[in-house]
């Protein structure tokens, strides 16, 4: 069984103006463990919706999402929260660091509700901060860090729990070209160490970092690069 197994995924919601929006129109997706998958497409193509559903944040209208054999939407809300804590690391487009916590405390956030010694939490957080090259910046507040450093803190926070799956939504969206390249290189490095990553991006310059690419248009499969394997079939 694939590490990620999505079948006939549909998502419909009522958009602004009261009309129905079909964000996803029946997708199948299988991703093996250790893959760096890039989901690409224009705004409104459904890529962020797909990531939200994969992250257990947004219930699909229909379909099934399995991660490591777990049927996500068969879980109740609290179990789904536990799943996010234990299985997933999130990297958001706008960093989403908590402004009143230091970099180190932000990285420790996913451990805050875990029963483990404080020293162990701190050690684990310092280790991943070192991994993203910010070992000496742990005491700084987000406002005292550059955009690239904040993104690294966000990546460290996503990794601190050693999650089997890392989800990244436009992690380079608000960074300059040089910093974007650094972040992509870091993600690639993590992937080469065995980390499964699903990343949403609209930046075609990032496509060289991915093992696979999924291109969406209007909630459906769009044409893909000839060198990539088609990963989605349209049921709609």
């Amino acid at each position: 069984m694939a590490f990620i197994d999505i079948k006939n995924l549909q998502k419909t919601y009522i958009g602004a103006g009261g009309h129905q929006v079909d964000a996803l129109k029946g997708l199948d997706l299988e991703v093996e463990e250790g893959v760096f998958l890039g989901i690409m497409g224009q705004s409104g193509s459904g890529k962020s919706t797909l990531l939200s559903i994969l992250g257990g944040l947004c219930h699909p209208t229909a379909g099934m999402v399995m991660v490591d054999g777990i049927d996500l939407y068969a879980l109740d809300q609290e179990k789904l929260a536990d799943f996010r804590r234990e299985y997933l690391g999130f990297v958001f487009q706008s960093f989403n660091l908590v402004p009143y916590l230091t970099a180190l405390e932000n990285v420790m956030l996913p451990l805050a509700v875990k029963k483990m010694p404080a020293a162990e939490k701190r050690g684990q957080a310092l280790r991943v901060l070192g991994l993203v090259g910010l070992g000496d910046r742990g005491g700084h507040l987000p406002s005292q860090l550059s955009g690239g450093e904040q993104e690294r803190v966000a990546i460290a926070r996503a990794l601190v729990n050693r999650p089997p799956l890392l989800l990244a939504d436009e992690p380079t969206g608000s960074l300059d070209t040089a910093t974007s390249a650094e972040i992509m290189a870091l993600l690639r490095e993590l992937n080469e160490d065995g980390q499964t990553i699903v990343m949403v991006t609209h930046n075609v310059e990032n496509q060289g970092f991915f093992d696979r690419i999924l291109v969406l248009r209007d909630g459906q499969t769009a044409s893909t690069d000839a060198s990539t394997i088609p990963l989605i079939t349209n049921h709609a």
Binding site: G55, E78, R85, E86, L88, L109, P110, V113
Partner: peptide, 16 residues
């Protein structure tokens, strides 16, 4: 709202 959304996304339960 944003902060609570982050907490929830990071795996905080409702009770947390």
């Amino acid at each position: 709202t944003r902060e609570i959304g982050i907490f929830r996304a990071l795996g905080f339960r409702r009770s947390h």
